[in-house]
Simulated assay, not measured.
Amino acid sequence: MNLKQSLICAIALCVLGTVAWELYWRSQGYYPDLDNDEALFAAQRKRADKASNSDVILIGSSRIHFDIQLDVWKKETGIKPIQLAYPGATPLPVFHDLVHKTDFSGTIVVGVTPGLFFSSTTTEKRAYRSANDKVEYFHDQTYAQQLNHILSIPLQQNLAFMSDADGIDAMKLQFLLEGIQFGNRIEGSDFPPFPNFADISLDRNLRMTEKTVTDTAFARLIKNVWSFKSTPETPPRELDKEGVMKIFVADAKAFQDRGGNLVLLRCPSTEYYRKKEENFYCRDEFWDELVKQSGAKGYHFEDYAQLKDLDCPEWSHLSGEDADFFTAEVAKIMMNDNSIPFNLKTN
């Protein structure tokens, strides 16, 4: 066989292998989806450097990421926010970065998820490290990494096997090996499977999948992760209220002193998380104190009849339909208070 034939055979085998691998993952229920990774975050963080005082930036954890839908916010206010929230992370590093590494003096809406917001102030802990790593990646990102991200987008949007399952690495070798079941394991010792239950777009708008809403067995898989070896009465492993207050309040004052507008938002939670938050993050000592010390305007879902009874299919995030409603109502409430900028003439 000559070199040309060898090349043709190699290409043919590569194409066949790729097609087979793609068809396999699609048969498992996966579909093309963007990775909610550092590069996607960095692309939006770059926008903050050029944002005007009429812009809105969203930061926080997964609740504000799921529950505020960017296009709905734009429909209500005429302004599309920059989404810099990140699942499983505290907003402290991102807020500190925006305050000290930009001259942005517009509006920052901070999603406050008690268990993450008050969790830690050191990079040794996951909630803080996760956000801090994204900030550092943005500042250290090379041109090669930026180009790699740009070139990867068409592949991510068209190939299911490129998906990172919203950061869970479900198709990577390590994850696949860890999923192999061996005998003689202690029952219940393995971390439960964590399926992807959201879709993300280039602007980092995150939306719960319809399957999570309609398939109770699927939603139970996610609940199993949230409640793994824990109950609403189990004390939080990480809690640094005083340290968090000190850091956040200092940055809040610096931001407000230069004319910035700071808004705090407490998104809904239900059942397991609602009980746990009531047990260990009582409102008057945490939320009320945070609003008071920061001098920010605060909006808690429990204070509004139309919001307080919204249900979270897996206890912590709203369905796409409810997120649309929540976003619209929150935007209206904040506009009526003159807490956020709006430009309805663009609608």
Rank of each mutant, 00 (worst) to 15 (best):
M1S: 13
L7D: 06
L7I: 14
A12P: 12
T18S: 14
W21Q: 12
D33W: 13
N36G: 10
L40G: 06
A42R: 04
A48G: 05
D49Y: 10
A51M: 06
S52G: 07
N53G: 14
I57F: 05
G60N: 06
H65D: 09
I68Q: 02
K74C: 07
I79D: 01
I82W: 04
L84S: 08
D97N: 11
L98G: 01
H100L: 12
K101M: 08
D103Y: 06
I108L: 03
T121V: 10
S130F: 12
N132R: 07
D140E: 15
Q141V: 09
Q146R: 15
I153D: 01
Q156E: 12
N158V: 09
D164K: 07
A165P: 07
D169K: 11
L173Q: 05
Q174Y: 09
Q174K: 14
E178G: 11
S189W: 04
P192I: 02
P193Y: 07
P195Y: 02
F197W: 11
T216I: 12
K223V: 09
T231I: 09
T234F: 05
L239Q: 12
D257Y: 09
L262C: 04
T270K: 00
Y273M: 14
R274K: 15
E277T: 06
F280L: 08
E285V: 12
W287I: 02
E289R: 14
L290D: 02
Q293C: 13
G298L: 03
Y299M: 05
F301R: 00
E302S: 12
E302A: 14
Q306I: 12
P313Q: 00
H317F: 00
E321Q: 13
I333P: 00
N336T: 06
S339G: 10
L344N: 14
